[in-house]
Lab assay of single mutants.
Amino acid sequence: HMTFVALYDYVASGETDLSFKKGERLQIVNNTEGDWWLAHSLTTGRTGYISSNYVAPSD
């Protein structure tokens, strides 16, 4: 899985979204569905959809 880092804080707007904080590391589970990616937070252990605009590759 690809690992990304959050560029900004994000508060989930629905049950399927994932809230995260700036600097949080996220593993991308599925990024084939446009701008919203299914991600797993390595910080909180939660999984949900994130906006690809809010993250950048961590490598």
Rank of each mutant, 00 (worst) to 15 (best):
D59L: 12
T3H: 10
N30I: 10
A6N: 00
G34K: 11
Y8G: 06
Y49R: 05
M2W: 10
T47N: 05
F4V: 12
S19N: 05
N31V: 12
S51W: 15
S52T: 07
S13Q: 14
E33I: 11
G48S: 01
V29E: 07
K22A: 12
T44D: 03
L38I: 06
K22M: 07
A56T: 13
V5L: 07
D17K: 10
V55S: 02
V11T: 11
K21A: 09
A39W: 03
T47C: 11
V11S: 09
A6Q: 00
M2Y: 10
A12W: 02
Y8K: 08
S19R: 02
S41D: 03
D59N: 12
A6D: 00
S19A: 06
D9N: 06
G34I: 06
A39V: 14
T32Y: 08
N53L: 14
L18M: 11
L26R: 00
S58P: 08
V5K: 02
S52C: 12
E24Y: 03
H40T: 15
L42S: 05
H40Y: 14
N30Q: 10
L7D: 02
S13N: 11
E33Q: 14
L18V: 04
I50A: 01
A6Y: 02
S52F: 07
H40M: 15
G23D: 05
L18D: 01
G23F: 04
T43H: 09
L7G: 02
T3K: 04
R25M: 15
Y8V: 10
G23L: 01
V11H: 11
S51Q: 15
V5Q: 04
T16L: 14
Y8R: 11
E33Y: 11
T47Q: 08
W37N: 02
S19Q: 05
A6M: 03
D17A: 09
G14K: 15
P57F: 11
S13D: 09
G48H: 03
W37V: 07
T32M: 12
S41I: 02
L7C: 09
S51G: 07
S19D: 07
L38G: 00
F4G: 01
A6T: 11
W36S: 09
H1E: 11
G14L: 11
S41K: 00
V55A: 05
R25F: 15
R25H: 14
A12L: 02
S58T: 13
L18G: 01
H40G: 01
D17G: 12
F20S: 01
F20C: 04
H40N: 06
S51F: 14
N53Y: 14
T44I: 05
Y49S: 02
L7S: 02
A56S: 10
T44A: 03
D59Y: 11
K22H: 04
P57S: 09
L38Q: 04
Y54P: 03
P57L: 12
T47R: 07
G45A: 02
H1N: 13
Y49H: 05
Y8L: 09
F20V: 07
E33C: 13
F4A: 04
S51E: 06
K21Q: 11
G34T: 09
Y10A: 04
A39Y: 04
K21I: 08
L7Q: 05
T16A: 12
W36R: 15
V29S: 06
S52Y: 07
Y8N: 06
K21P: 01
S51K: 15
D35A: 09
K21C: 14
L26Q: 01
N31G: 13
R25N: 08
V11F: 11
V29R: 05
T44V: 03
V55R: 02
R25T: 14
Y54L: 13
Y54S: 14
E15M: 10
N30W: 09
T32C: 13
E24A: 03
S13M: 12
A39N: 01
V29L: 15
V5T: 08
N53K: 15
D35I: 10
T16N: 14
Q27W: 14
Q27N: 07
A39E: 01
S58C: 14
E15C: 11
G34V: 08
F4P: 00
F20Q: 00
T44E: 01
G48A: 03
L42G: 02
V11E: 13
S19E: 06
D17Q: 15
N53R: 14
S13L: 12
W36F: 11
W36C: 14
M2E: 10
D17L: 13
S52A: 13
F4T: 03
Y10E: 06
H1P: 14
S19I: 05
I28M: 06
T16F: 15
L26P: 00
T43W: 07
S51T: 07
P57M: 10
T44P: 00
D17P: 01
Y49V: 04
V5D: 03
H1L: 13
R25A: 09
F4W: 14
E15G: 08
R46L: 13
T43N: 09
K22Q: 09
W36K: 14
T43S: 11
L38P: 01
H40S: 07
S58N: 09
N31C: 14
Y49M: 09
W36V: 12
K22S: 06
K22L: 05
A56C: 11
T44W: 03
Y10S: 05
A56Y: 09
R46V: 06
W36P: 13
S19W: 04
Y8Q: 09
H1Q: 12
K21G: 06
G45F: 05
A12G: 11
G48R: 00
A39H: 00
F20W: 01
Y49P: 00
N30M: 10
E24R: 00
I50K: 00
L18T: 03
D17N: 10
G48V: 01
S41Q: 04
D17W: 14
K21V: 10
D59T: 12
Y8C: 15
M2K: 12
S52I: 10
A39F: 04
L18C: 03
Y49I: 05
D9E: 05
S52H: 07
L18R: 01
Y54A: 15
G14W: 11
R25Y: 15
A6K: 00
K21N: 09
G45V: 02
D35S: 10
D35H: 11
R46Y: 07
D17C: 14
R25I: 15
E33P: 06
R46C: 06
S51R: 15
G23H: 04
A12S: 09
Q27D: 07
F4Q: 01
E15T: 12
D9K: 00
A39G: 04
D59S: 12
R25Q: 13
